[in-house]
Amino acid sequence: MNNITDTLAIADTIVSVKKTDSGWIMHHIMDSRAIELPFFGEVHIPQFPLLFGIDLTPTKHVVFMWLSALLVLLVFATVASKYKKSIVPRGIANFFEVFILFVKDEIAKPTIGKGYEKFLPYLLTAFFFILFGNFLGLVPYSSTFTSNIAITATLAALTFVVTQVGGMMQNGIWGYIRGLMPHGIPWWMMPIMIPVEFLGLFTKPFALAIRLFANMLAGHTVILALIGLIFFLGTWVVAPLSVAFALFIYLLEILVALIQAYIFTMLSSLFIGMAVHQEH
């Protein structure tokens, strides 16, 4: 629920924690076992049994992830059914076709090239899953699951798996591994180059995970800090300025939500393209 509209909730939280503490911001950004609903207050999620020592209790972020997945599913099932009726898109199909074609023609096709069709389902799913998650995080009382490092790291790891598997399927396992080394490297450079290239494989998804996580976190944090300023200083004087800035950041976040979904998909596609066509 990282939004300017729920200033009251923020105020309540501030009362409950020490004034100089930043814990209330963390409380609104971080995952929790409770979901806050308008008019109902907090709903606590029941504890799930442990599975192989892993606590599988769905947290707030998991719930919003499911909500986002469900939304994506509903929207694109509707879009697909529209295409069954007519080849000419109308309404919602027309709107989302722009995004689908963007991912297809502007992201996958130029970065992967030949054989990009195989990776389109993954890229489209990642793009819309993240996009819906980012936008869902802007809705009052909601939570941004894309600002959770565990989730973004998992998504990046999935990109990593798709990249490696795609590269190996295209070039053969041994051919892919050999292709990781740049051509024309003298043999005595190998002890240096092998660890460097090996590390390079993992820095790519690491950068993906951190970028999405940090970007989605930052906007919300700044909005909360700006709103919190009113209560910290305990005066109405800063309120117009705080709200104006928070609103500006909020608008910026709409842009960021779009851009980060694009960047994640774009970089995933780029890494896949580099693994599939190693000669480049």
């Binding site: 998991v62 099932a77 899953f129 565990a150 999935l158």
Partner: peptide, 30 residues
Amino acid sequence: DVNPGLIVWTVITFVLLLLILRKVAWKPIL
């Protein structure tokens, strides 16, 4: 802090979403 449960749920959610969407949405749309 990384919650291992979240990783499991993310993988399950995303892979399921990918498989369902591929069949229900991406194939017919593309």
